[in-house]
Write a protein that binds this DNA or RNA. Structure first.
Length: 645
RNA sequence: GCCGACGUAGCUCAGUGGUAGAGCGCAUCCUUGGUAAGGAUGAGGUCACGAGUUCAACUCUCGUCGUUGGCUCCA
């Protein structure tokens, strides 16, 4: 007999060699039907796994991530079987489950191409195979046998994978006519895969290496029930409605022009107004934290980036130098603001008493991003960083680092970004020559970040090898409408630029010392931030960010004069008011949500004109009653204040 | 940059080897006194650009540019 401990702590005894699915059946037949995977000693396993010794045990239903993962992994195998049937000679790469669904990388037979229109055919084949409910069988195999099996099929990618595996750890999973190298776990059979949707086709380099062959990646998602698939597809549709590119166009916030160039956003008046408000908000916060605004040019001599080390690393893949009539003179569009700020730091001798120096600038930078990588406002070639560089003494580093975290957390809270993730990026310990700077400095900087997070109670994931080449960093990531992660706020510690630019301060010992530098951008860039803000709010910005706040509507021409008076008073406060001509069908647009940036409508007529008041309506909330114009101003200010708190 | 898809009126899209349509928007006029409105009429497009096949190309082929789903990249 074996003792099996369940998640609630209870222990039951079973015959040795009982399978997980049999345990589920012993609890209830319905559970056995719904269960998809199990964890034995906290390791996810097949339901067909037999239990030979005492263990902890948990069954996973669809709700558990482990179950979804298993379900989608088996779905990838099902798709592979269908592809094999439809395209003989197809070769397989890898086919894992992902956050939502799964993919399989395949190498199509010579001369064959798969396109979107073929996906339905593959789906149908998958359904056909699934309905046969063939079992998925696991098999342990020796390395030699595995090699000869896949060599006989000329599966070059699988062979490459097997060669990297240890003998004795290799397993196969078979279902129907398909066999795959796979460590599992999988469903007991493919019959449960009922609702199938293949989503898209993409190219993907074998093993993520752009020098190697590009395989065809097919993405799909499956569910145990059709209703769940329908709900998921509807969710995708809803997310598309929040796409910042769509809303940005509708609300006339920004646009792109082929004539201006790829990835070069043009901010329209309303978008510029929104951006200006965000900038002013941040400026105010930064002022309170002791930052000084500076302004620097968009170009600088090439030597500036040779000194910083950026030219050596990125020069070839950037906008190329600007030449002047002078022989040999070269300027670069600035890809970052750091060197300019370093020169500001150097403009006069600094005392230890002056530190920290905090130089802030909404600095527009230019980076020649790969064309395929451009995406709406989230990835562009010209963007404005809410940049600042902090120069401080080593003993001030942690304190300054934490103050920056405070700013970022305050901003995220004010804008109601709750689901952000934080990531600490450290260097790859096995590849230290990729980075510039001494070991000692790197270790100090990395420790400062890890400790700061700990003290702020922030649970950050740690990624090795993700650091910038000059220092470690802490990033704040937010997901867009479709669940893609974008990095917004960033804080980076840098011991290298102060070295390269020979920055100094005079210490209390009357000796020269090297300051530490922190790069930081709470929004990241105005472009990306606005994009993510649009998707989070679905275009319904907080009142204090709204480009236009009020429409004044006279109920007949007779009251135009009074409407003008009202809007004048409002415009003298910081509320923006527009008079609505009655022929403009703005009312219907607001009602139908076609216009999202006019949260208030003021109706003025005889009564209002007589007692100098306005009738107030708030979008989505209806009548707010009649009030004097001054009361309305303080009403809005109160609402704004509430949102800012 | 690479693989796939897409590019028709300001927007969202339909359409066909014989030189184009809808809805919304826009313009003009009418109507509307408590209203997040109604009606009529009208103006908009060398069907992204260039070449080729064809008697004839928006439609087929190739190329370019741009957008887009991914991959790689992201100072």
């Amino acid at each position: 007999m074996v003792k099996v401990t369940f998640p609630d702590g209870s222990v039951k005894e079973f015959e040795q060699g009982i399978s997980a699915i049999e345990i589920a059946k012993s609890i209830s037949p319905r559970l056995a039907k719904e269960v998809l995977a199990c964890s034995i000693n906290n390791e996810v396993k097949d339901l067909t796994t037999t239990i030979t010794e005492d263990c902890t045990f948990k069954l996973h239903k669809w709700e558990d991530a482990e179950a979804k993962h298993t379900f989608w992994h088996s779905s990838a195998h099902l798709m592979a079987e269908a592809l094999q049937a439809l395209y003989p000679g197809i070769k397989f790469g890898i086919g894992p489950a992902i956050e939502s669904g799964f993919y399989y990388d395949v190498d199509m037979p010579e001369g064959k191409v798969i396109t979107d229109s073929d996906l339905v055919k593959v789906e149908n084949k998958m359904r056909e195979i699934a309905s046969a409910k063939s079992e998925i069988v696991r098999e342990d195999i020796s390395k030699a046998d595995a090699l000869s099996l896949f060599e006989s099929k000329d599966e070059v990618y699988k062979i490459e994978l097997i060669n990297e595996l240890e003998d004795g750890t290799i397993t196969l999973y078979k279902q129907g006519a398909f066999v795959d190298l796979c460590k599992g776990p999988h469903l007991p059979d493919v019959g449960g895969i009922k609702a199938i949707k293949l989503l898209s086709i993409a190219g993907a380099y074998w093993r993520g290496d752009e020098k190697r062959k590009q395989l065809t990646r097919i993405y799909g998602i499956t569910f145990p029930k059709k209703k769940m698939l329908d709900e998921y597809l509807e969710l995708l549709e809803e997310a598309k409605k929040r796409d910042h590119r769509k809303i940005g166009k509708e609300l006339e916030l920004f646009t792109f022009s082929q004539s201006v160039g790829q990835g070069l956003p043009l901010w329209l008046p309303k978008g510029a107004a929104l951006r200006e408000r965000l900038e002013n908000f941040l400026k105010k916060v930064q002022k309170a934290y002791g930052y000084d605004q500076v302004i620097t040019p968009h170009i600088g001599q090439k030597e500036l980036w040779v000194t910083s080390g950026h030219y050596a690393k990125y020069g070839q893949d950037s906008f190329q130098p600007i030449h002047t009539p002078a022989e040999g003179e070269e300027y670069l569009l600035k890809p970052m603001n750091c060197p300019h700020h370093c020169e500001i730091y150097k403009f006069k001798p600094r005392s230890y008493k002056d530190l920290p120096v905090r130089l802030a600038e909404f600095g527009t930078v230019y980076r020649y991003e790969q064309s395929g990588e451009l995406h709406g406002l989230t990835r562009v070639r010209s963007f404005t960083q809410d940049d600042a560089h902090i120069y401080c003494r080593p003993d001030q580093l942690k304190d300054e680092f934490m103050k920056v975290m405070d700013i970022i957390l305050y901003i995220f809270k004010t804008l109601d970004f709750q689901n952000f993730e934080t990531q600490i990026s450290l260097r790859d310990p096995n590849n230290k020559e990729k980075y510039i700077g001494s070991d000692e400095n790197w270790e100090k900087a990395e420790a400062a970040i890890v400790e700061s997070c700990k003290e702020k109670g922030i649970e950050a994931t740690v990624e090795l090898g993700e650091a910038a080449f000059y220092g470690p960093k802490l990033d704040f990531m937010v997901k867009d409408a479709l669940g893609r992660r974008w990095q917004l706020g960033t804080i980076q510690v840098d011991y290298n630029l102060p070295e390269r630019f020979e920055l100094e301060y005079i210490g209390s010992d009357d000796q020269r010392h090297r300051p530490v530098m922190i790069h930081r951008a709470p929004f990241g860039s105005m472009e990306r931030f606005v994009a993510v803000l649009i998707e989070h709010t679905a275009g319904k910005f907080p009142l204090w960010l709204t480009p236009q706040q009020v429409v004044v509507l006279p109920i007949s021409e007779r009251f135009n004069e009074y409407a003008e008076k009202v809007s004048k008073v409002l415009n003298n406060s910081d509320i923006r008011a527009e008079i609505d001509d009655r022929n403009e069908k703005i009312g219907r647009k607001i009602r139908d949500n076609e216009v999202k940036h006019v949260p208030f409508m003021l109706i003025v007529g005889e009564q209002e004109a007589e007692n100098e008041s306005v009738s107030v309506r708030r979008q989505g909330e209806g009548d707010k009653g009649v009030m004097s114009v001054n009361d309305f101003i303080s009403f809005i200010n109160n609402e704004v204040k509430k949102e800012l708190e």
